[in-house]
Nucleic acid binder design. Structure first.
Length: 583
RNA sequence: GACCCCGUAGCUCAGCAGGAUAGAGCAACGGAUUCCUAAUCCGUAGGUCGGAGGUUCGAAUCCUCUCGGGGUCGCCA
């Protein structure tokens, strides 16, 4: 439970009560009041801006208002002191017992600690990866995959009903190119020497697809016209590529709930339906676009085309729905796809895309606004580039030279947990450096290791405790019965406070759609824990295990258990497995 | 030309839902190991948050303008 929320509601009650008693005007708007951890810990445990926010309405000076609120706040359970500071902040200090109670909450909740009902069961559709089915995934896709997956897990933890979705772009020109490329590999499988011309996909990964095609269908297409084989080979190839991609995703621990096919959508008339919907609302017309400025485009010629009135919904210009050959643009089918997602009952839509799609965001948001009549909201997270490094030197990659590094190779080299964690050590829209040497290093420079090490350290103490205390019961239930009043050192309190803030962090991160905050939180928690551990090197009384004091030991173990649970809980949201031992 | 992202310590980056004296890590310097893994920790130093206005009791955070870096810009997805 997010105790800041509880505090907020206590505070609202106080304002109401004072209003009824005539000490304050009645019916003050308390919605802008915030209760949060003060930046500076010496200011206490909870800081509220209540007095500053209410002063205008109450027609009082903020500090006077604060002084009025303070005695009431002091009556709230576990509040040990209330102080008015600065321009009118009210700083509240909570008792150690309060933190002890939160520690018990953690033990009782286990890795469910942090689970929130903020989402109120609202439905969110997170679309991510959606790599074209034309080849194996590269590292950039991997970032989108991790960001999307972690975001989905995060939203689920915050109480949303989440659908994880993959959109298969199996209807455009690219899959025709794929089919033609595979056809050449098919001929190659019969012993022919082929050269992959410019414009087709040269990758080796299509060789086995050509061979399999031969195995399944024999030589029936060797001398056939393209029109006879293209569709069948296309379907065959797309399936093969999707198998490949699904394997890559599985290796990364990413599992989608729904795979949607663009082709199916088109075949089922989804695009027409969506365009009809827009047409009925007079949002489509035939017009001529201005040529793009500042960029020399020789082959540009003004041409009337079917346009969506995107500019009515915040886009800069209206956007084309049909190509010059009359077929639909990608945008047209994407409108249909988002329409479909909305109609399937999503209150919120999230797309995780590569940063190169940045120019696409406005028009898609406009489309969603139009298609949902403002009811659904689309948020687009752009996953920026990943730069692969080896000891600080950029890894040179070239498709031609065959030195292109796939996502799978990276996963196989460093493990999925490392990939997932590192991908979330930057916010999604900042470029990310992925250094093979650094991410596998066992030192504090490596955040994955640093956090995992903290978790492993907890377990190292558990093992030692089992040994020294003759198989002591380390279950949460038993540890929760410990006399926690033994936990009073500053570092111990800090740890408990951090863990108590975990639910609030989940809610904030979920609200902002920023899973990377989890990694930073875990780093902080690990840091606080390492710090306490090291205090024990100088001050023996702060060590966790005391052969002569079972009660103290039990309390310390309860703290350790909670730390390990919160770290595990956070890693779970990242899709990373907590380790109990480091080799 | 328009739009999007970025600009915070020498370097790499956080900055929580507008809050108080802006934080970590690296690098630099000085310390801690008879002890549950020192694979770690503690301390010192380092900043006009690119710049200028505005909104606000209060701005790194929101708005406008401006400078610098990156990206995108009908008939690719």
């Amino acid at each position: 439970m997010n105790f800041f929320k509880v505090f907020h509601s206590n505070l609202s009650d106080i304002v109401t009560k004072l209003g009824e008693a005539g000490d304050l005007p009645e019916g003050l708007d308390t919605s802008r009041i915030t209760c949060e951890p003060p930046r500076d810990a010496t200011h206490g445990d909870v800081a509220t801006n209540a007095a500053m926010v209410l002063c205008k309405q109450a027609k009082m000076k903020p500090r006077d208002l604060a002084e009025k609120l303070a005695p009431e706040i002091e009556k709230i359970a576990h509040v040990v002191s209330v102080e008015v500071a600065g321009p009118g902040f009210i700083n509240v200090k909570l008792s150690d017992e309060f933190w002890h109670a939160r520690l018990k909450d953690v033990l009782n909740a286990g890795t469910d600690w942090g689970q929130s009902d903020m989402g109120e069961g609202q439905t969110v559709n997170v679309e991510y990866v959606s790599a074209n089915p034309t080849g194996p995934m590269h590292v950039g896709h991997g970032r989108g995959a991790v960001v999307g997956d972690a975001l989905a897990l995060l939203l689920a933890k915050a109480g949303y009903k989440v659908t994880k979705e993959y959109y298969i772009n199996d209807a455009g020109a690219q899959v025709d190119v794929l089919a033609r490329s595979v056809y050449l590999r098919y001929r190659e499988a019969f012993g022919e020497t082929v050269e992959i011309p410019e414009g087709l996909y040269p990758g080796d990964y299509l060789v086995p697809v050509g061979e399999k095609l031969k195995d399944v269908h024999g030589d029936k297409w060797l001398n056939a016209d393209e029109a006879d084989y293209l569709e069948e080979i296309k379907t065959f190839s797309i399936n093969a590529m999707m198998d490949l991609i699904r394997e890559d995703l599985a290796a990364l621990g990413v599992v989608h709930d729904v795979f949607s096919s663009e082709k199916e959508l088109v075949d089922n008339g989804g695009v027409e339906a969506a365009l009809k919907y827009l047409e009925d609302r007079d949002l489509i017309y035939t017009g001529v676009l201005e040529p793009p400025k500042g960029k020399t485009s020789e082959d540009w010629e003004p041409r009337p085309q079917l346009l969506f009135k995107a500019s009515q919904f915040g886009d800069d210009v209206d956007r084309p729905l049909k190509k010059s050959d009359g077929s639909g643009t990608y945008f047209a089918s994407d409108i249909a796809y988002h329409f479909d997602k909305f109609q399937r009952g999503s209150d919120q839509l999230i797309d995780v895309l590569g940063a190169d799609h940045g120019g696409y965001v406005k028009r898609m948001k406009a489309a969603v606004k139009a298609m949902s009549e403002g009811k659904a909201e689309l948020d687009v997270k752009l996953a920026q580039m990943v730069n692969l490094l080896e000891n600080g030197e950029p890894v040179k990659m070239s498709k031609r030279a065959g030195t292109f590094i796939t996502l799978r190779e990276v996963i196989d080299k460093v493990g999925k947990d490392v990939v997932r964690f590192i991908m979330l050590t930057r916010k999604n829209d900042a470029q990310l450096e992925f250094d093979f040497a650094k991410v596998t290093e066992q030192s504090k420079d490596n955040p994955v290791f640093y956090v995992q090490y903290a978790h492993a350290r907890c377990y190292s103490v558990f093992r030692k405790a089992m040994d020294e205390f003759d198989g002591i019961d380390l279950s949460e239930a038993n540890l929760a019965t410990a006399d926690l009043s033994h936990l009073s050192d500053e570092s111990e309190i800090k740890l408990m406070r951090l863990m108590a803030e975990w639910p609030r962090l989940i809610e904030a991160a979920a609200k902002e759609h920023e899973p990377h905050r989890i990694t930073y939180f875990l780093y902080d928690l690990a840091s606080e824990f390492h710090s306490l551990w090291n205090k024990g090197t100088g001050d023996v009384s702060l060590r966790f295990l005391h052969a002569d004091n079972l009660e103290l030991t039990k309390a310390r173990l309860a703290l350790l258990k909670a730390v390990s649970l919160v770290i595990a809980s956070g890693l779970l949201v990242l899709g990373v497995e907590p380790v109990k031992e480091l080799r």
